[in-house]
Design a protein around this nucleic acid. Structure first.
Lengths: 331, 331
DNA sequence: ACCCTCTAATAGAACGTTTTACTTCCTGCG
DNA sequence: CGCAGGAAGTAAAACGTTCTATTAGAGGGT
């Protein structure tokens, strides 16, 4: 394996000069630089990242820990993260917590061992202590799709209360007099806040928020949505349904149409996330769009700014507003 | 930052012993081991992975380079890769080539610098030279969803010719007398091979393979599928349509239904990949299922076996058969 | 001619592990 | 009693970079 020394010997300079060519090309005379660069490509030298990290004290790698890489929401976030990182020459180590705190802990440990420059994480629980431990090791943390735990920390989130309010306000504006909320586990922050928003909208419209019918599923999949819809049909349909994500909504939609219920004439339906398939389903689905890709991009930019410019960096708590996308299922 | 030396001092042993506790716990007396372990957790020590990699000459990291992380197909592959890696204590560096050779090259370079143990890649082009360069640096390469370039290499693929044949054979068996093939760019190996399979099936049924109507789109999205469907409607509908992936098929389905064409009564329709949404759409979509998650798992197992047991490792070329999943859209 | 500054390059230590060769101590056996 | 052999632990040399201090040389101003 060819090292910096071999390059140095081949170019007739010292290893330090080669290092300068690599890291501070301005510091070395043009003629020498060219000679070194020729030697590099001639020998096919590639820098040993670990040696570099060891000596320099920091790596050009960040960690990304998400809850479910199979969920289109996180996939788009990951795409944003990957794009920015790749532009700035950073590598991304991917961790999938699959909702398990254990797995998340294991992943964070791996990231700590790699001495990543920073970590982007959508935490799967509400315990900030594990993240504080990372910070003690000098690893910056930026929260994604989650409000900040503490002031000296960046976070990029979306207003879930506002989103829930807007979704239900839209249903009510379309003339619905009753609303059901089909949701995932109410241990998940997002589900709870969207529910809270739904109640706010009802209150604003002069309805009793206690009248919100809540159907809670353990998973947030289309199958769970179908199940929820049959519960609704069995116990009497509301005039409108708000689902905590689009997968649930697509399941509800399918089960309703199967049973001869017309959407939106009999029941208006709105989802959340605006995944690609929402627009493509047969009765196109209204939804709350989140700037998913941007979430990933901005979080990464904040993280890398915090790493590369620690003295000028200002911590930011960014809160996006989701955007209502009205389609056939509500009009 | 606490190092192995601090731990050694705190436990009253030498650094070498701490290293042994970490890497070969059997070699150290139980009493000492406990003392060291206590020191480790007391000081909150985490091993410096780069130092370890530098000295040991190899890392516990692999690279994963895919063509489009936004595509559910690759997402599921990634989930399989991540699960196996995480079980065996390996970290995964993610690279998204987005179909660009340049970006793929950049990603491979980053992986080489990180001295990853191996690389899993779905190559975006057909040039094996770049991958050979990795091998010269001692990095094992396993191809995913792509046949092997050379015998001394592992590869995990799916029979795309067979899949195309089975899909079209199914359409013909359902009574269709004409077939259109809606595909992505015919520079993509998978699209070409599925087309070849389709022709084989026609030949086997006594039809002229030249009668296959081919509609080629530049992207493989639902939108492209809708466009393709309007082309078909404008120029006269075939009795059946085979799509190179499910996103195209869902777009075709939607456009057809919108125009009052009944599926499957007027036109039978089959997709490819069997993504989750295929089963969830209003007219559920027939498709060719690929063992996507398994693809990721097995490729990773092969790679890590090649890395961890270089002497006993036997290179394998695995070819899965896709499985026909018949749903409403073809019966 | 002398001192000062500036540029270009170098030597060599340091980063935190792993590993090899070595010491020490114990145990069992002839 | 002496000695082989194993177990447990240590000291010190790597691994391939980066970085600090240092040197050598080239001008430039007085």
């Amino acid at each position: 394996m060819v090292s910096i020394k071999d390059v140095a010997a081949h170019a007739g300079v010292s290893p330090g000069t080669v290092s300068n060519v690599l890291n501070r090309p301005g510091k070395v005379a043009p003629a020498t630089r060219e000679r070194v660069e020729a030697a590099i490509s001639e020998l096919g030298f590639v820098r040993h990242g670990s040696a570099s990290t060891l000596r320099a004290g920091h790596s050009r790698t960040i960690g990304l820990s998400v809850i479910d890489i199979g969920n289109p929401f996180f996939t788009e976030v990951a795409a944003g993260v990957e794009d920015v990182s790749s532009e700035l020459g950073y590598a991304v180590i991917l961790g999938n917590s699959a909702g398990s705190q254990d797995k998340e802990d294991r992943n964070l440990r791996v990231l700590a061992e790699h001495r990543v420059r920073g970590v982007l994480i959508t935490p799967s629980g509400e315990d900030p202590a594990r993240l504080d431990r990372l910070r003690e090791h000098g690893i910056s943390v930026v929260l994604v799709d989650h409000p900040a735990h503490r002031p000296d920390q960046c976070a990029v989130a979306v207003d879930d209360v506002g989103g829930g309010r807007a979704a239900v306000a839209h249903l009510l504006a379309q003339g619905a007099a009753s609303v059901a909320y089909v949701t995932g586990p109410l241990t998940i922050r997002q589900c709870v806040e969207r529910q809270e928003g739904a109640r706010t909208a009802m209150r604003a419209a002069g309805l009793d928020p206690a009248g919100l019918r809540v159907i809670e599923s353990m998973t947030m999949t289309a199958r769970a949505g179908e199940k929820a819809a049959s519960d609704l049909i069995a116990s009497g349909l509301p005039e409108s349904v708000f689902c905590a994500n689009d997968l649930l909504a697509l399941g509800v939609l399918r089960a309703l149409l199967r049973s001869g219920v017309r959407v939106p004439e009999d029941v208006a339906l709105i989802g959340y996330d605006d995944i690609d398939f929402a627009a493509a389903s047969t009765v196109s689905l209204s939804s709350m769009r989140q700037p998913t890709y941007q979430l990933g991009r901005i979080a990464t930019e904040l993280l890398l700014d915090e790493c590369d410019n620690p003295e000028t960096h200002a911590h930011q708590h960014i809160m996006f507003q989701p955007e209502l996308v009205a389609r056939e299922s509500t009009q």
